[in-house]
Write a protein that binds this DNA or RNA. Structure first.
Lengths: 202, 202, 202, 202
DNA sequence: TATGAATGAGCCTTCATTCAT
DNA sequence: AATGAATGAAGGCTCATTCAT
């Protein structure tokens, strides 16, 4: 009665993972559906069983990528000193990105695509949300530090944005091969820099 | 007696400027040669009189864009205190980018394209050079500050990279519409943050 | 003991009926096998248990459609006056088509397909036979009328063809929405026109 | 200054003519753009210089076909007796169609396509207009005949529609190979039939 | 027997590039 | 030197058909 039994969800994820590799390697604009089909070892037509069109596949890859960050934001708590919390957060981020440098490729691609107006508002929305999640965690940590008397009362929003921007920028340099983000010294250097900027006593 | 005296170099630059507008608006991957021809008010075939192919046109636009930064790097001197020099540099950068937010679009596009391996090594090289120019200026300022006893002796290279990354990241947020980089408070906030991180006395 | 007794012939007919609906709605060139599978509430693969390929399914639908006309031709007899017989035949046809305007759609579709040479000789044959059946009935009635002295001795074949053509044309106009073939006046108008053309006394 | 000088309108017409042949031969649903490109001896891309997409090419062919009828309708006047005018009109039509039997193919294809709902309303409109033009001419002739006392006062609209339907139907039979519309006897037979139906004296 | 997931041939359409004028 | 008509390679997507279950 029933033909080939397939876990469609699992297969969809498998395709997404292969597609992410392909997009990371060839670029969001240059990769071909046939590249993905080959990488995932399925026929071209099969891709369209799981994704309406190329764009839907790309979006799925991006969402899948964003989902991988949820855990990081959730892993932060405010039990310890604000200084320790911030060091911990920075450290976790560097570890995560060091391990997933490939998927960062695709993120920059998405953001680049998001820059082109009108059509890609959805990308912007998704990306903005991810960005805000990062910023929100930092804001929580910094405000907690101010409340605890560890940090000076600075412009929290701008500081948080600047910190995320800095991490983003360093990550970008890593992707570009300008510096080596797997260098274990990074978290300490960056944390120090931020904490010095925040310290009451300097 | 010559039937039509045309300054080929001037016309080439005119095309580059129009092409830059087109690329900024449509994106480095989506713009068409015909878009450029229309914008520059020349025939499609004419473009090929000035540029071997699409890639050469794109590269020319990127180089033209990079050249616009040379002045900024050159404008920095070390006559004043390191703190003042750094504030001045940050301030100049924000002013420049606020005025040329459109051309930043294209930079991110180039960098995104540069991420795709093999073929685009040239872009990476060009971009790396531009990045290094920025970093070099900061390194000069910071080292000068250390020598003058204004700054602590920190990991200069990483600090400089982090600062450029931060500026890059904030700029990116501006392009994405996440924050407003024309806000006049940015230079002071960022300068303070950096200087606090560098200060001996805090 | 047999696990599932299925009347294959009945199921085949059920599929044909659903397929006819689908073809009528979507058009002979635009309908998809999956449309039929959905409409008939069977799997796509199942269709191929009953029909070798799409073409065989289409042909089966057409034959099924043609069969519905056999009764009409058979219902005609020559007991009454030729004038009455012709009026009766015209009237029956209009009633039949008024009730089955939907299936006329499919007929025109078949004919349209039949127009494409080479491959579809079979359609032409089937259609020609149906056409000839209609014409034959008219020829019988007219010849009967001539024999009975009611009609003039005209070119029977051409007259019959013209009459069928006229009915066909009016039907087509009805399908196209140009006129309303359910208007009860049609049979009388058409019969009068034909009979005036055939009358000895005018 | 100016490249290849081409009469774009003439070339467009040439493509339309070749496309009409192709569509007539292969069918409106089965022909491929590459068929047309081959027939017109141009590259596939060239077709898209003249027509936005396949549908626009098809529509252009149809409109071109319809335009060929305008002259016929215009050629009718009411100077002579209504009987003579009608004979003349019928005769002109048969001559025209005999010469252009190929383009009739495409007309039936259009009409068939027009039958499929929603999307093809434009075809229906174009076709309805053409149909009405034919009917209008007949109505003029018949009304003129009634006024002149040559014809009986019958339901003019239905008569006219029936006559056009008849011509349409016979034409269809011709296209289908069921009868030979180039047979010179047709105009006389049909005219007689119609005139007998219209005559006061029979 | 029934199914629907998988497939890939095939077709429309785009666009960088060429070249006759 | 300048042009834009012409081109065809390339790639996204559809859908009839197959076949493992």
């Amino acid at each position: 009665m029933s033909p080939r039994i397939v876990n469609k969800q699992a297969k969809k994820e498998a395709i997404i993972q292969k597609a992410t590799e392909v997009i990371s390697a060839k670029g969001i604009y240059s990769f071909k559906m046939s590249d993905v089909a080959d990488a995932a070892d399925v026929g071209k037509g099969t891709l369209y069983e799981y994704f309406k069109d190329k764009e839907e596949l790309v979006t799925a890859c991006y969402v899948y990528f964003l989902d991988s960050f949820i855990d990081i934001a959730d892993s932060v708590d405010l039990k310890n000193s604000a200084r320790a919390n911030l060091r911990s957060y920075i450290s976790v981020l560097f570890k995560h990105f060091s391990k997933n440098i490939d998927s960062v490729h695709i993120a920059f691609d998405f953001w680049s695509q998001a820059l082109q107006s009108s059509d890609n508002r959805q990308y912007v929305k998704l990306m903005t949300k991810a960005y805000n999640d990062f910023v929100a965690v930092l804001i929580r940590i910094i405000k907690d530090g101010i409340k605890k008397g560890e940090f000076r009362a600075i412009d929290v929003e701008k500081y948080a944005a600047a910190i995320v921007g800095m991490l983003d920028g360093i990550l970008f340099q890593g992707v570009m091969g300008i510096n080596d983000i797997t260098d274990a010294k990074w978290p300490r250097v960056i944390s120090n820099m931020i904490l010095n900027g925040l310290s009451k006593t300097g």
